[in-house]
Design a binder for these strands. Structure first.
Lengths: 137, 137
DNA sequence: TTAAGTGCAAAATCTTTGCAAATGT
DNA sequence: ACATTTGCAAAGATTTTGCACTTAA
């Protein structure tokens, strides 16, 4: 059983061709993938709606996480192995390329201290950066 | 001449009632305002489209900056006085409230060091945090 | 006066919902 | 067998575009 199939059964999801292909597509990319990108990759082999539903389901189960690009379009990337439904997506930086608009999840060493005003309760800090990626430079 | 009128003329924009009201509405709020919120505030006194255009124009001129909420909806906040068209929006943290979905621009003291992989060029780091705001706690 | 801004209608995007048919376990 | 997943059609929501009318400078 490959990794995609394993992830699915592990979360009580049916091992369907669409979901397997969505997951393996993500595994092959360095960046978070958008719905439009997936639709192109499937090239008619899956309905637009099915892809939306697959992405939503995978996110709900904590298998992938969602990032909004600077263009406002949602993109999804595989979570790390140690992610859980309740706590995930914390320990990395989202790098937004201003040219291709792709979003990359990158490791980050240290987190800043943040002092919030009175009455604000912090649950999570996210780092995001923008610039030009590897591919577009 | 009030601050709104000043900001407009300073950037070569006409001092119209809609723009003045958009700006003073933002001045009164602690959080970034969405198009829907503005539309509610205008209550028919300005067309939906005019508000979209006003927000886009203000953003292009560097008078306000745009933040995407966790809900994917764009929100806008006044830039600090020292912002320019080419460099602005750097020195603060966007706090996303998970209850009301509002976004607050907060001051931040120190920025983290970020090491990017080879080939990535950094132009800007943004900090964002989520939790519960002042108002919703 | 006239370039810029506004309103209305219509279109373009992106995403969700309902329901019947197909599929995984 | 049966709950889940998929495909199709249709609707919703957000944002943009075109064009004639209005307004600030």
């Amino acid at each position: 059983m490959d990794r995609s199939a394993h992830l699915l059964s592990e979360h009580g999801l049916k091992n369907t061709p669409v979901r397997r292909k969505v997951l393996s597509f993500m595994e092959e990319r360095k960046h978070a993938v958008s719905h439009a990108e997936l639709e192109g990759a499937f090239n008619g082999d899956a309905d637009r709606v099915t892809l939306y539903r697959a992405l939503n389901t995978l996110e709900e189960k904590g298998i992938v996480h969602k990032v909004l690009g600077r263009d406002g379009i949602a993109r999804y990337a595989l979570c790390q192995d140690d992610c859980t439904v309740h706590r995930h997506d914390d320990q990395h930086l989202h790098f937004h390329c201003n040219t291709c608009m792709n979003v990359f999840c990158l490791a980050v060493d240290d987190y800043p201290e943040v002092n919030l005003p009175a009455g604000f309760m912090l649950s999570k800090i996210q780092l995001s950066a923008e610039g030009i990626c590897d591919n577009c430079k």
